[in-house]
Nucleic acid binder design. Structure first.
Lengths: 121, 121
DNA sequence: TTAATTGCAAATGGTTTGCATTGTT
DNA sequence: AACAATGCAAACCATTTGCAATTAA
């Protein structure tokens, strides 16, 4: 794993954003530092960073997958219908597991709030 | 809005399944009744049924959208990692709105449990 | 009869892959 | 030099659309 300019730019896009990013958002943000950045390269780097556990995927209902830095505390997400950006939401409504139907086994849960962010509200 | 054989079959696929269905699942299920059923027709009918509010979309994180009969009580969903089927989960952990960050407005929420269904567990 | 519905093929949008080229070490 | 990373074009997959043929009312 070599350290290239584009990889550096992709990393710092996540550091700077502080919220989950879509591949296109990564291209736009990192592309300011490295204008020749290619979308294919973004996809390949995101994939590699997930395999190396630097990033995790953030599946968003009805939307393209986002990515965020790995190792954050358990939290959930907010999808803004105005700007399509995704934000982290600290905390978790406990008592989610107890919804599990009899005979089923729950290993994870996704909670996504949908609405308007501070800017769009 | 004319009543065709294929539309009838699509309707009854939902009645019979009792769980959210993907377009492909609809094709498979309704295709048993109407073998010449075409995937394009399924997509067009699903879209029409959503506009007419007979169905609602069920966005599943990281997966293709599912559809289910409209008008059900508020509930959530369970995604089985074994068979990729989606099931309804009655109930709702209250206290979800209180996760909303200051300045944000929450208008809806999605909760998806992920794990193994009764058959796959 | 005639307007809605269908089927097929082609277009689309997001993501992935093959392969030759470039860049780090 | 050796091999990982990149760029481009083509392949993919799910979904949508154009258009001519079919069918319910």
């Amino acid at each position: 794993m070599r350290m290239t300019e584009q990889r550096r730019a992709i990393r710092s896009a996540f550091k700077g954003a502080g919220r989950p990013l879509s591949p296109t958002e990564v291209l736009d943000l990192a592309g300011e530092e490295v204008p020749q950045l290619n979308l294919t390269t973004v996809y390949r780097n995101l994939k590699g960073m997930v395999e190396r556990e630097e990033l995790v995927q953030v599946p968003v209902p009805g939307q393209a997958v986002r990515y965020e830095l790995a190792g954050l505390d358990h939290h959930h997400h907010f999808l803004c219908e105005g700007c399509d950006r995704v934000f982290d939401v600290p905390g978790c409504p406990g008592s989610i597991q107890r919804l599990t139907p009899v005979g089923f086994e729950t290993t994870a849960h996704e909670v996504t709030l949908v609405g308007r962010c501070r800017v769009c509200a």
